[in-house]
Simulated scan of single mutants.
Amino acid sequence: MVPPFSLSDAPVTALPGFRRTFPRGRLTLGLFLPVDAGRAEEPDVDIIRQVELVRRAEAAGFAAVWLRDIPLRDPDFGDVGQVWDPVSYLGYLAASTSKIALGTGAVVVPLRHPLHLAKQAASIDHLSGGRFLFGVATGDRSSEFPAFGVAEGERDAVFREHLQVMQQAWTTEKRGIRWSGGRMWGGDVVPKPLAVRPPLLTVGSCLQSMAWHREHADAHVTYQRPLPVQQKYLGTWREEGNDKPFAMSMSLDLHPDPEAAVGPIKFGWRVGVRHLRRILHELEDMGVDHVILGLKRGTRPAEDVLDELIEDVIPAFRA
């Protein structure tokens, strides 16, 4: 284990969370938290129950669980997202699990101070034993930006600048950092991460070009699209010889009939387990490395769906 005051030159690909989630050449599965269905505005907030479900997923072979960063509840949005603060929740999950990767999908970078965020990300990196996956985004809830004093139209530039500040904080010692929102002189951010940085995953477009993503991200996460469209999008990520991992989220309403055909829902499918396995194998053959399943739009109890996934799907995609 790297001491928290020491700079590391280890690659992010050596970290256990990254290796578990992106084992190269085969697809793994993750879960969005909370593991709950049909209650987007008032999801399950029983942390004890959620940790029990995460432990069950960990033992079965899910590669990762993922937390969203929703600073404010917006009644007009129709989805409260994540009730608990993701940084606090990640610390709790790190202490409650031992193998499963812990990811953010994603932290809204423009709304957070970059030095605080650098310290928080490196802390979770250490507390989880290198299982943290740092998913980042620019945010898409317009009501949040004026509340935090950020111009929504400038969030793409703020996003890039804050990432640069964090990278400097992680890779230097007692060196000044100056940016449009402040300056640090004579101080230092600790702990330093276990690798050159916590694995950085860009989630969604982040209002950046794909060339920017290929250069700056360690992996890329996007949402579900029709398979031919997703294959074309994946092709833009793979341009110029880029072999970094590619992940996607998928809303799932698992039909009680295992033979049920595929039907669309928002950002996903309503489908029986047999056709779900077929879809996942097609994505694997396409070159998708990780699929994050979201159960909130499901019509069955989430625990029943998790049990069925563990029995009938995970054996083919076990981490």
Rank of each mutant, 00 (worst) to 15 (best):
K174L: 13
R197F: 00
H162I: 07
G176L: 09
R183C: 10
V196Y: 04
G181L: 02
T202H: 13
P199Q: 01
D188G: 05
T202E: 07
L201H: 10
W179I: 03
V158Y: 09
L201S: 05
W170T: 02
V190D: 05
F159L: 07
M166I: 06
K192L: 01
G176C: 11
W179T: 03
R178F: 10
P199G: 02
P198V: 01
K174C: 12
R175E: 15
T172E: 11
W185R: 14
F159R: 00
W170I: 03
F159Y: 09
V158C: 10
G204C: 12
R178T: 15
T171P: 09
L201Y: 11
A195M: 01
W170E: 01
T172K: 11
Q164R: 13
A169W: 01
V189F: 00
W170A: 01
G176H: 10
G204P: 11
W170Q: 02
W185P: 04
L163Q: 07
V158K: 09
R160F: 06
P198G: 00
V190M: 13
G181K: 00
L201E: 06
A195N: 00
L201I: 15
V203S: 10
S180K: 11
V203Q: 09
P198Y: 00
E173H: 14
G187N: 12
T172D: 06
R175V: 13
L194G: 01
L194I: 03
D188H: 07
F159S: 03
R183K: 12
P191I: 05
P193T: 00
M184I: 11
R178G: 09
K174D: 15
A195H: 04
V203K: 08
R183M: 12
G182A: 07
R183H: 13
V158I: 15
V158S: 07
Q164C: 04
R175T: 14
D188K: 06
R175F: 09
G182T: 06
V165M: 09
E173Q: 15
R175Y: 09
Q164L: 10
V190R: 11
G181W: 03
V189R: 02
G181M: 06
F159G: 01
T172Y: 05
R197Q: 10
M184H: 05
G182F: 03
M184A: 12
P198F: 03
Q167S: 12
V196D: 07
V196L: 11
R175I: 11
T171M: 12
L200G: 06
W185V: 14
R183L: 11
G204K: 10
R175H: 13
Q168R: 15
K174F: 14
G181D: 02
S180D: 09
Q168C: 13
Q164V: 08
Q168D: 14
E173I: 14
V190C: 10
E173A: 14
P193V: 02
M184L: 15
G204D: 12
G176W: 09
L201Q: 09
K192C: 01
Q164A: 15
L201N: 06
S180M: 05
L200E: 08
R178Q: 14
T171W: 10
T172G: 08
R197A: 09
G187F: 13
T172C: 06
Q167Y: 12
G176I: 11
P191N: 04
